[in-house]
């Protein structure tokens, strides 16, 4: 009796579930956050075999240097990274000359004084501001985030960065924007304190590529993705080797396991089965009772 109640309870729950499930799914579809589709592009580094396009990285560095670095630091990068494998792969001499354009405070010397010297390969990238507070004050109270891992720090990663750079739009009449605030389609909340950074021809590419907005956005996004994940190519390469290896090992272990377990069908075990079978057969055929149909 009580069991039937439990059965009914369970059936009720299953029905409730279905309703709950439907509500939840439709709930999240109509939820506050409208799903914004990012601007599509093909990224050479996506996918399990993804690699960076060297030329794009070099152009992207140029965009960072000439447009972004005025406000945005990228403090976890060192100049030597520009020459290392897996990145823009500039020549060592080129990187030395890039680094030497920037100064760094060093010391104290033997006289106890601090001094400035040109940056070296081993030095980190120069910061536009001495500290976070200076950067915030110089930019209307909004700190231009450091770009070292910016791509990983945003939902949507490189697609978000790319879309944001190209996402500045005119506002409709009546939409209030304070001074120094701009409308961006992809910024959460739509209000961003960075003015549109990329305009056609803002940079004259060293390799002669035409510097359209989309080209610059793509290049700098590629550069920033590399900056956030400098070992991406090594990771993909190693991953491939690891997977091939694991599949081979898995196959070998699988067959080894089968071989080991096949010992259970050994003579010992089948002898035991035969023994039991014989005993049953004897019990049935030696039956002396009345009812051969049911053996009672």
């Amino acid at each position: 009796m009580k069991e039937r109640m439990l059965i009914r309870l369970n059936n009720l729950l299953v029905k409730v579930f279905f309703i709950v499930f439907v509500i939840t799914i439709s709930g999240s579809a109509n939820s506050e956050e409208k799903k914004i589709e990012f601007i599509k592009n093909n990224w050479s580094f996506e996918g399990i075999f993804g690699t960076f396009n060297r030329a794009s990285l070099q152009r992207g560095y140029q965009v960072y240097q000439e447009v972004c670095s005025g406000c945005h630091s990228i403090q976890h990068l060192s100049y030597r990274n520009l020459a290392e494998k897996g990145g823009p792969e500039f020549t060592l001499d080129k990187v030395k000359s890039i680094a030497a354009q920037f100064e760094i405070l060093d010391g104290p010397n033997d006289d106890g004084e601090m001094f400035t010297r040109p940056r070296r390969l081993s030095d980190k990238f120069a910061n536009p501001y001495p500290n976070v507070q200076a950067a915030t004050a110089a930019n209307g109270g909004a700190y231009p985030p450091d770009m070292s891992v910016l791509v990983k720090a945003r939902k949507g990663e490189w697609n978000y960065i790319y879309s944001l750079l190209l996402g500045y739009e005119e506002v409709s009449a009546g939409y209030e924007l304070d001074d120094g605030v701009y409308y961006n389609k992809y910024m959460p909340g739509n209000k961003i304190m960075m003015s549109q950074p990329l305009f056609e021809g803002a940079v004259e590419y060293a390799d002669g590529t035409q510097a359209t907005e989309t080209q610059m956005a793509k290049d700098v996004t590629t550069f920033l993705t590399w900056a956030a994940e400098p070992h991406l190519e090594a990771r993909h390469k190693m991953g491939f080797k690891v997977f091939i290896f694991l599949i081979i090992l898995l196959t070998l272990v699988y067959f080894s396991k089968q071989k080991v377990w096949s010992r259970l069908d050994s003579k010992e075990n089948s002898d035991q089965k035969d023994e039991t079978f014989d005993k049953v057969e004897r019990a049935v055929t030696e039956y002396e009772g009345e009812d051969p149909k049911t053996f009672k």
Partner: peptide
């Protein structure tokens, strides 16, 4: 089979 497995392992 076992030797191969041990080796790869």
């Amino acid at each position: 089979l076992f030797t191969a497995t041990y080796t790869i392992g």
